[in-house]
């Protein structure tokens, strides 16, 4: 790779600003949930833009931003091989177990 010598095409505007996916935690104790995306030149600005764009109505107590390029997603074609094997393992779910009704805090 040679050193960049000139301003890359499109560098004059947000065309070259990466896309960030935004995740918001609604309140303490909940997981961060994907709410949308935005463009920002860097992570710090992405975080601040995320606050202004996605939490104007107190929708959040915490924000994550992740470069969209850094997300590896399973493809719809892989759905069967990825997720179906979990379907018959009902013993992972607490409702699988019969316990006496008078035992508290289970």
């Amino acid at each position: 790779m040679s050193e960049p010598t000139a301003v890359p095409a499109g560098a004059h505007d947000e065309r070259s600003w990466p896309l960030w996916e935004v995740f918001v935690r609604g309140k303490r104790g909940l997981a961060h949930t994907h709410v949308g995306s935005l463009h920002a030149p860097d992570a710090e600005m992405a975080l601040r833009n995320g606050r202004d764009v996605y939490t104007r109505r107190q929708e959040g107590v915490s924000i994550w931003v992740v470069r969209a390029d850094d997300i590896t997603a399973s493809s719809p074609d892989e759905k069967d091989s990825f997720f179906d094997p979990a379907a018959d393992k009902i013993y992972r779910h607490p409702s699988f177990y019969d316990v006496p009704e008078d035992v508290e805090y289970l």
């Binding site: 560098a11 947000e14 860097d42």
Partner: peptide
């Protein structure tokens, strides 16, 4: 434009 360009350069 100059603002967006500056953010890029930074």
């Amino acid at each position: 434009a100059w603002v967006r360009e500056a953010a890029n350069a930074y």
